[in-house]
């Protein structure tokens, strides 16, 4: 317990968590069967304003000598321009230090970018070490919406997404897109936050959450939200407040990451 507390202080330094008060919140979208419009009651929780960075994950690896799924299984999936929509390529050299494979460069100069190429399983290990947890599906949406009930926390039109999120602006993924200065991830906090001061809720990386969409959903699948640098309005269009993605808990993609929620005292 003491160790977990110390490592938490180290890994989450300068990360002023945003307190979301307990209460009833409206989430979901009308007509969506798996995330219907509804009111939920939640306890208060404190969520990180930024996605977890390479620097924070490195601290975990240095302290624990943890090897990620991608390092042990050599089955990470990476992206390069020229792939058809929704296609990724397997790269046995890819892991969090080389999220798109060694040939595409490392993260040495990107320590303030979100950590990627990690699996849900890896994230659980990080959270245990750091004494934090992932937000639930409901908590993530409440934090993202920041009191709004529109499709985006800035309204119903996605026209201004570029001000708030690192997303793919190209028509497809055949050509590189650096229109916003970033083809892959951007440093956390590079774009405008939502009304509660949370950055990158849309885009940059998909953020894993806990919870299931269906009671009978298998335990090999996890959910993530908010879209990523890969997502475009012409492809998945997942950078919004209501969509919920799904991926294998051992899968490592270079557009998957996470942000954390503080553990309450006595629940660590």
């Amino acid at each position: 317990m003491l160790l977990a507390g110390c490592s938490f202080c180290y890994s989450q330094a300068n990360n002023n968590f945003v307190l979301v008060p307990a209460g009833k919140y409206t989430i979901g979208k009308k007509g969506y069967l798996t995330n219907p419009l509804r009111t939920v009651q939640v306890d208060s929780f404190s969520i990180a304003p930024y996605e977890t960075t390479n620097r924070q994950f490195e601290a975990f690896v240095k302290a624990t000598h943890y090897q990620t799924d991608a390092e042990r299984r050599h089955d990470a999936l990476v992206f390069e321009p020229g792939l058809k929509e929704f296609e990724w390529i397997s790269d046995t050299t890819a892991y969090w230090r080389y999220p798109n494979g060694k040939s595409r460069g490392g993260i040495e100069k990107e320590m303030d970018h979100p950590v990627t190429c990690i699996s849900y399983h890896d994230i659980m290990a990080y959270c245990t070490w750091a004494g934090v947890r992932l937000p639930s599906l409901e908590e993530w949406e409440i934090a993202c919406r920041a009191g709004t009930t529109t499709d985006y926390f800035f309204g119903d039109s996605g026209a201004f997404i570029g001000q708030y999120a690192n997303v793919w602006h190209g028509r497809d993924h055949m050509m590189a897109d650096t229109m916003d200065g970033h083809m892959y991830t951007a440093p956390v906090g590079s774009f405008k936050p939502n009304a509660w001061g949370l950055y990158d809720m849309y885009g940059n990386v998909f953020e894993f959450c806990t919870g299931k969409l269906l009671p009978d959903e298998g335990n090999t699948l996890a959910h993530a939200r908010g879209g990523s640098w890969w997502c475009s309005k012409n492809a998945c269009n997942f950078f919004n407040s209501y969509d919920i993605g799904r991926v294998n808990i051992r899968a490592s993609f270079s557009n998957q990451g996470f942000r954390v929620v503080k553990m309450k005292k006595g629940k660590g």
């Binding site: 995330n35 999936l77 929704f86 397997s90 879209g227 993605g245 799904r246 557009n255």
Partner: peptide, 15 residues
């Protein structure tokens, strides 16, 4: 055989 990325999910609507 290959992992599908996170947004490879069908979100059925009621119509």
């Amino acid at each position: 055989e290959q992992y599908a990325q996170t947004c490879t999910i069908y979100f059925p609507k009621d119509d």
